[in-house]
Amino acid sequence: MSHILHLVNKSPTERNGFDTCLRMAKPGDSVLMIEDGVYAALANADFAKTIIGSMNDLSFYALGPDITARGLNDVPLIEDVHVVDYEGFVDLVTETDVTQSWL
């Protein structure tokens, strides 16, 4: 089994990439929210329960500079979504086996 890093760059309320990613990811995989994908980290948004429901199986990360750029630093984010910087992004890519983008 390979450890896949799933990259999601779309808001879950704009496109279905996040839903499809969560349908296809297998337990043990990691998901990194980048660009508009970071909107999926909002704790008070409807989509939060979908993310929280997947937390037993998947590890979630979000790209910090994209969170800050969008003014999301002053709203609650889902606990256990780990915020990383670009170097953390690189580490996630190299520490997993394959990277799959859900464009």
């Binding site: 296809m24 394959v98 799959q100 983008s101």
Partner: peptide, 18 residues
């Protein structure tokens, strides 16, 4: 099925999305 596809995806080295 999604379940079966998941196994296909799991075997890949390079995944290119469009």
């Amino acid at each position: 099925s999604s379940e079966e596809l998941r196994e296909i995806i799991d075997k890949q080295d390079v995944v290119i999305s469009s």
